Simulated scan of single mutants.
Amino acid sequence: MPRKHKELHATPMLHVVSRGVDRQDVFERPSDRAIFERRLDDAFRKHQVELLAYAWMTNHVHALVRNRDGDVSAAIGETLGLYARHFNAITDRVGPLWEPRFWATPIESDAQLLQTVRYIHRNPLEITGTSKLVEYPYSSFAVYTGERRAPAMLCTDPLERLLDPVRHRKRVLRPQRGDRLPFAFLPPQTTTSLDEIRLAVESVVDAAPTTRLPTRLVTILLAVELRAGTTAEIAAALAIDEGTVRNKAHLARRRLARDPRFQILRQRIFDSLPVR
């Protein structure tokens, strides 16, 4: 779970995410992001916080930050607050621009750090596609592949020991099966449809035609796990009610925890999904 704000001062490295209220756009013109970066740079220097990696999207922002005996909450809060004043002034709007609290997840290992940087750098994929991801100007990806100079606000030293430019480029651009799974509290990098899950279930069933398998239960479990739709959408597609979806998903999670055969079945179906 994300770390509460009062604990952030004790965490050296964090993945921070903030989203526009009601998921509204927080950047409307290129100059908006430039102003956001200036506000961030000033606040981070003031509060002794370092920016290690980032991706500024349309309605949310990702930042990997390191606390240098400073105050991450104050640095982020000041950045978001000052930028909101700018945005409200130029768009003639009033009220909060960002959701009431930002999310911050502590980084506790090198493996988690690598996956977090990969997640951040893959965020613009839906905008750019794979071929032009490195050209996205509002991300630190091209900095760590050696294709763009680091801006003054970015501290690259902590990551350079872990990120070989060629390997990092391949790691980010090459899809992984795990991209279908949620990343902590964040959405999956690759969407999964209920039809894809059904096809994967059918392929596993066809491989073991004489074995009776709990296909309905595992289909519902994977649909919920992989966020193939809202509860209402899954219920409508399977011609059941929302309560049944929730109850079956709960039953499947309990079975997954104690039944090795069910674990194997779920994994086989997941492994049958295409990597993309």
Rank of each mutant, 00 (worst) to 15 (best):
T128N: 13
P96V: 10
L64N: 04
P30W: 06
F262I: 01
S203E: 11
E126W: 09
I120S: 02
T230C: 09
L125R: 15
L163H: 01
R148T: 07
L82I: 06
I264A: 12
I220T: 13
L64V: 02
R255V: 06
R148W: 08
A53D: 12
V17P: 07
V201F: 08
R101S: 12
L80A: 01
E196R: 12
D259Y: 07
D164Q: 05
L199S: 13
Q24G: 03
G77F: 10
R216N: 15
H62K: 03
F36C: 01
P12Y: 08
R45C: 07
V94C: 10
E160C: 01
N123F: 11
L52Q: 00
H5Q: 09
T244R: 10
G146I: 08
T190V: 03
A208Y: 04
L64A: 03
L162F: 15
H47C: 00
A236F: 01
I35D: 11
V201P: 14
A208I: 06
Q176C: 05
D41F: 04
A150Q: 05
L14C: 05
E7V: 15
T11H: 06
L162D: 09
N88D: 11
P274W: 07
G243Y: 09
A237N: 04
R167K: 08
R85G: 13
R23I: 01
R246G: 03
A152D: 13
E37D: 02
S131I: 10
